[in-house]
Design a protein around this nucleic acid. Structure first.
Lengths: 210, 210
DNA sequence: CGACTACGAGCGAGCGCTCGGTAGAAGTTT
DNA sequence: AAACTTCTACCGAGCGCTCGCTCGTAGTCG
């Protein structure tokens, strides 16, 4: 099952305890990382924020970097679940895409600080761990690729097959851009306006050959 | 003239020397920051890389953060110059846009590591300095806004006036995304393909109401 | 008692930055 | 022209401090 996930060793034996404590750690770390960034947050602060002593915290991770990895994994899982939730077999490709893109925009809106965090801190991971995080990012992009392909098959979407991958990336980036360019966009658009206008950018393209 | 630029004090008096040494510092720092990131690079390393002693380097800056600011400013100036270069008064809005978007894509391609750097490290600046950097980012976006407005005026581009700002941001983000999602995109597209396909995404939209 | 989890003072490495000193150019006095 | 003074850029050992992480000990439960 969990093939593309890096397993972080723990001194503690009880798996349920591990999961619970790591959840604590992630939640505390997210709060701090979004506020101050990874490098400016100390291990002592993380421990305090999640209600553990440093000693105890280090029973559940090996390095500070592990915390960042857990955080990245958590964020990606969160986003992925939200996106998978609304996907139904019965929808046409086009309907599914419309739903999912909208879902993406509003998810990014709610998860804004988390999206920004993952954008800015992934590079602080070692190559090994970054690989896993980028893999997950790609899996999320693939969600949209699949939907596009479905629409291509059932004729509800028309697009050059060689552009499918690119369009999937475009959708993700246009979605996430609401998070990482929020400082500029928020002054001119609400999330509703943003959603509507960007949807039209995406869908006019997808019908232009139909 | 230089109103939106933060001036970093220097102990040294000679302005020409300041400029020359800071150029050295920026060049050395860029090499290191793109490789290791800002936080993992030490001041000693920067000094060594640019051929100054730490003591001397600190005659030209006040803090390590100043170096990052100088680097960000350098990158933005570089990009802005490239974009301004190809803009001619005589072109129609549409021609100008086509040229400039293409120019953006290929500039981002060449400046890839720099674009990624500015994306990832801007947040390491203090609020004060970040303000200046984001301002510059916005000015660069405005280049495209102006072109779009010109096209709207001369009738060569058709777009909802309220979407102009957004479209300018879209163009910038789609350009820069070639840098920060290179790890995925490079496996499927060359820069030429990328440019061509993304241009069609942008321009089909801009003609759809025409 | 043995197995396991929690604790936090403390270690040692490494960091950003300073500051007293040097060399030599520029200016001034004799 | 020589001697002295001032100014300026350069230097790097070292200061003070913070960081990530460890490990000996204490507490708890079966």
């Amino acid at each position: 099952m969990k093939k593309n996930t890096h397993v972080i060793p723990s001194v503690v034996k009880d798996p349920r305890l591990i999961e619970q404590r790591r959840q604590q750690i992630v939640e505390g770390a997210v709060r701090l990382f979004t506020k101050k960034g990874f490098h400016k947050t100390t291990t002592r602060e993380i421990a305090k924020e999640c209600g553990l002593s440093i000693g105890t915290m280090y029973e559940y991770i090996q390095t500070k970097e592990d915390v960042l990895y857990l955080v990245c994994e958590y964020i990606h899982t969160q986003l992925e679940q939200r996106l998978q939730q609304l996907i139904s077999e019965e929808d046409t490709g086009r309907d599914s895409l419309e739903k999912s893109v909208k879902n993406l925009f509003y998810s990014v809106d709610e998860m804004s600080p988390l999206i920004v965090l993952i954008y800015q801190e992934t590079k602080s991971l070692s190559k090994e761990l970054m690989k896993y995080v980028l893999q997950k990012e790609e899996e999320i992009t693939n969600i949209f690729e699949k939907i596009l392909l479905k629409g291509l098959k059932d004729g509800t979407i028309s697009i050059d097959p060689d552009s499918v991958k690119l369009m999937a990336h475009d959708i993700i980036v246009i979605g996430q851009m609401w998070a990482f360019r929020r400082w500029a966009l928020k002054r001119f658009y609400t999330i509703d306006e943003y959603c509507q206008r960007q949807m039209s950018l995406i869908f006019e393209k997808l019908l232009s050959r139909g």
